[in-house]
Measured scan of single mutants.
Amino acid sequence: MATGGRRGAAAAPLLVAVAALLLGAAGHLYPGEVCPGMDIRNNLTRLHELENCSVIEGHLQILLMFKTRPEDFRDLSFPKLIMITDYLLLFRVYGLESLKDLFPNLTVIRGSRLFFNYALVIFEMVHLKELGLYNLMNITRGSVRIEKNNELCYLATIDWSRILDSVEDNYIVLNKDDNEECGDICPGTAKGKTNCPATVINGQFVERCWTHSHCQKVCPTICKSHGCTAEGLCCHSECLGNCSQPDDPTKCVACRNFYLDGRCVETCPPPYYHFQDWRCVNFSFCQDLHHKCKNSRRQGCHQYVIHNNKCIPECPSGYTMNSSNLLCTPCLGPCPKVCHLLEGEKTIDSVTSAQELRGCTVINGSLIINIRGGNNLAAELEANLGLIEEISGYLKIRRSYALVSLSFFRKLRLIRGETLEIGNYSFYALDNQNLRQLWDWSKHNLTITQGKLFFHYNPKLCLSEIHKMEEVSGTKGRQERNDIALKTNGDQASCENELLKFSYIRTSFDKI
């Protein structure tokens, strides 16, 4: 039985969820670079991206490699990797027998973001014989899940209580170790020597080791999670996991709180800001991140802002960003909400898709409305799209047979046209069989910064309504002859009103 693990408890099935942008060198404390989270699957090609990484700022997932063999891993080693800020997950990587050479110096898994409450997941690794993470000293947050690894031993010899604050939620089941077939031998045991430290858990006094050649490092209890030197002297209180010299914040392997210019500090002093819960960055760093993602459509890219001495992905609820200094300031009234469309555009074809934009005031991208039916549609669209004030790209209304009016965009005031449909149009209306009105132009103002209007096959939309939009939106004169079809717009509506004058002759039985 794995020490510190839980057996036999019912657990939810383990679901495996399925960018080499360097964020800056980590400095003297770390020998390499800070790398983003990685999802490495199918083959070993991307694994080489770990070569210079000291910190993975995010998670590391290595999974679904069915053609790899043990010899493929023999020359692979990433000794610079010290810390993973989120979680480490391995799933069905064939041929991998140990992690001792792959990650010989991995010391800390912070667990800032977890995989279903777990910071370390080893699942269905069919050839893994031992973990071998002999320098792993601290899992700051989260638990361990090690399950269905039929060859995995050296679990009962690990004292997880020396690595985690609590072992109650560890789930370590259905491994070879369960069948008591392992016969784990710690260093020196074969020669009758006791080389590794022994600890007591559940009444068992057991030597602690990761492999037959690597003991588990056990520091004096007084050192807590700070770690200790090879001689057993406690590291500085700002260290986490390990250090090369005692009581020196510049000799830590990793930091308990924050890293700044080669030393570990309790908090980031001005003019620095907390970033990702582990390091200090200056304003320029946060500003660069903001600008890199301002026009990016890459998933996970955030326009970072500053709030409460932190550089964070977005302002919290009730705050909006001051564009001059990136500071989050309290909103006066309802907060603006910028919604970034991942692929640059979004099609609204149902109430469900409209709900995804609920509360958005600025759309960074283009909207395509293609709704053919739905219950209580006008009210639903207004509830979900009615706060949109600005669209950076274009607005396209296409084959939306259920629409009679666009009044559900009740606050839309600006279409920038930074991206144009077919390279020309910022407003595009095609084949809307029941569209009769755009907006009530006596109450609604709309500016279209650039781009043209396109109207074709809107049989109940009168040309007068379209011409009014040209005047109000500032697009009059931009359109070419064929942009607004004269014969297919309003051709099934009563669009022309003329005053009919009647004269009559009164007659009676005795007068003409």
Rank of each mutant, 00 (worst) to 15 (best):
H28A: 06
Y30I: 01
Y30P: 09
G32M: 09
G32N: 14
E33G: 12
P36E: 14
N42Q: 10
N42K: 09
L44G: 04
R46A: 13
E49Q: 06
E49M: 08
L50M: 11
E51V: 08
V55Y: 05
E57T: 04
H59A: 09
L60P: 00
I62D: 00
L63R: 08
M65H: 07
F66L: 15
R69D: 01
P70Q: 11
R74K: 12
S77H: 03
S77I: 09
S77F: 15
F78P: 00
P79G: 05
K80L: 07
L81P: 00
L81V: 03
I82M: 14
I84Y: 00
I84G: 00
I84T: 00
T85P: 00
D86V: 00
D86P: 00
D86N: 10
Y87N: 01
Y87V: 00
L89I: 10
F91V: 07
R92W: 10
G95W: 04
L96S: 02
L96I: 05
E97T: 07
K100M: 09
K100F: 13
L102I: 12
L102A: 03
P104V: 02
N105P: 00
L106C: 00
L106A: 00
L106V: 02
I109K: 00
R110G: 09
S112F: 04
F116N: 15
Y118A: 10
Y118F: 10
Y118I: 01
A119C: 03
A119Q: 01
L120Y: 01
L120H: 01
I122W: 00
L128G: 01
L128Y: 01
K129N: 06
E130A: 07
E130T: 04
E130N: 09
L131F: 10
N135W: 02
N138P: 01
I139T: 02
I139D: 01
T140H: 09
T140M: 08
T140F: 07
R141T: 02
R141Q: 15
G142E: 01
G142C: 00
G142A: 01
R145F: 06
R145A: 13
I146F: 07
E147A: 13
K148Q: 09
N149T: 08
N149M: 01
E151T: 02
L152M: 15
Y154R: 14
L155N: 13
A156R: 11
A156W: 05
D159N: 13
R162F: 08
R162T: 06
L164N: 05
N170R: 07
N170E: 05
L174T: 13
N175S: 11
K176D: 14
K176R: 06
D177A: 15
D177N: 14
E181H: 02
D184K: 14
D184S: 11
C186N: 02
C186W: 02
C186G: 11
P187D: 08
T189K: 04
K193I: 05
C196P: 11
V200I: 10
I201A: 13
I201Y: 11
N202T: 11
N202D: 10
N202F: 12
G203D: 10
Q204G: 15
Q204I: 03
V206L: 13
C209M: 02
W210C: 10
T211Q: 04
T211A: 15
S213I: 09
Q216P: 02
V218C: 11
P220C: 03
I222Q: 09
I222G: 13
C223K: 02
C223H: 03
K224E: 14
K224Q: 07
S225R: 09
H226D: 10
G227F: 08
T229A: 05
G232P: 07
C234F: 02
C239V: 01
L240K: 05
N242D: 08
C243G: 00
D247E: 03
D248S: 06
D248N: 05
T250I: 04
V253Q: 05
V253S: 15
V253A: 09
A254S: 05
A254L: 13
R256T: 11
N257C: 01
N257L: 03
L260C: 01
L260H: 03
L260F: 06
G262I: 02
G262C: 02
C264Y: 00
C264E: 00
C268T: 00
C268G: 00
P269Y: 06
P270H: 09
P270A: 13
P270R: 07
H274L: 09
H274N: 15
F275N: 01
Q276P: 02
D277E: 13
D277N: 15
W278Y: 04
C280W: 00
F283E: 11
S284H: 03
C286M: 00
C286Y: 08
Q287R: 15
Q287I: 12
C293D: 03
K294W: 14
N295L: 12
N295V: 03
S296P: 05
S296T: 14
S296E: 14
R297E: 08
R298Y: 13
R298F: 05
R298P: 08
Q299G: 06
H302W: 11
Y304Q: 03
H307T: 02
E314A: 10
C315W: 03
S317P: 07
G318Q: 13
T320W: 09
M321Q: 13
N325Y: 04
L327V: 03
C328Y: 04
L332G: 15
C335K: 01
P336F: 03
